[in-house]
Design a protein around this nucleic acid. Structure first.
Ligand SMILES: [Mn+2]
Ligand SMILES: [Mn+2]
Ligand SMILES: [Zn+2]
Ligand SMILES: [Zn+2]
Lengths: 152, 152
DNA sequence: CTTTTTATTGAAAATCATTTTCACTAAATG
DNA sequence: CATTTAGTGAAAATGATTTTCAATAAAAAG
């Protein structure tokens, strides 16, 4: 029956190879952690979970892997207002979404409601702004800040 | 002719007093710097400019003043993607605006074009999202990321 | 104008997430 | 096997921000 890679699983080995990189045990652990959570984890939190999968992984490798994956466009680095970065897979089942950010516990809540309207408006703005300010727009950020249900 | 404070100048002494704080030479220097620039300066950049006004000001005082003013709602702390925070007066002649952020030089460019449409959409989203997610929304952030005219 | 109270200060040390260094290992290639 | 190059963990370095602490200045009280 062919050679693996059924069930829509991603060919990470191939993706890395395309960037002149190798798929290693450490990187696999980091990716497994990212695939196995709905949260927006910090490097440190990813490190702890990755260690449960492979106790040999070092924090340095977690940072390096996250940076590599960001460069490859496979991971998004998020700012929760906390001083540490948080990460999520770019291509997850959630699709394009924005975040509600709790200023008390720094939790980031996904939402994709009304996002089509938001994106449509942003695209119109982008077109006009990029012309007016001679500014090449590559991406946008929308976040709402406040207090989450847990925190009130 | 009364006692000062004509010409729409703000009564900083009174503002601080209202928060149980004192108006000092260091704080005045920081505020003067913020009032005198159109840029979005880092703490360090504010420190350097403040020193030209009052050579006795310390970097610590700059940080403390910026935090105090943020608590008072008089200063906005901004994230340029750079690792250091940038600051602007909350009540400046610019009014409510958003930013284009250059990912190459980290410059933040003000814009208020089309902002009414943006804000209107955001307010509608806010209403629905806060109900659906039981999330109390206090503020929002919109930024566009890309390459500024200087950098291309 | 004193005295007392309390906020503010600068310098130096501490914090803490992230990055860099370095000597070593593992993978790929021939 | 021999060579080349990517990847590694531990420890050290970095750099923005915060904290500590003893000294000072402003406000309030007398
Ligand atoms: Mn998300
Ligand atoms: Mn601005
Ligand atoms: Zn919360
Ligand atoms: Zn630029």
């Amino acid at each position: 029956m062919g050679r693996g890679n059924c069930h829509g699983q991603e060919n990470w080995h191939g993706k890395f190879h395309g960037f002149g990189c190798r798929m290693t045990a450490g990187r696999e652990a980091v990716i497994t952690v990212l695939q196995g959570t709905k949260d927006h984890l910090s490097a440190d939190e990813i490190f702890i979970k990755a260690r449960r999968i492979n106790p040999d992984v070092g924090l340095t490798t977690v940072y390096r892997t996250l940076e590599r994956l960001s460069e490859m466009g496979e991971v998004h680095s998020l700012d929760s207002g906390d001083k540490r970065a948080r990460f999520e897979l770019a291509n997850n089942e959630k699709g394009h979404h924005h975040h509600l950010v709790c200023t008390k516990c720094n939790r980031m809540i996904d939402y994709d409601d009304f996002i089509d309207d938001e994106v449509k408006l942003l695209q119109e703005s982008e077109k006009k702004l990029s012309k007016k300010y001679d500014f090449t727009i590559n991406s946008h950020l929308i976040q709402f800040y406040g207090i989450c249900d847990n925190c009130k």
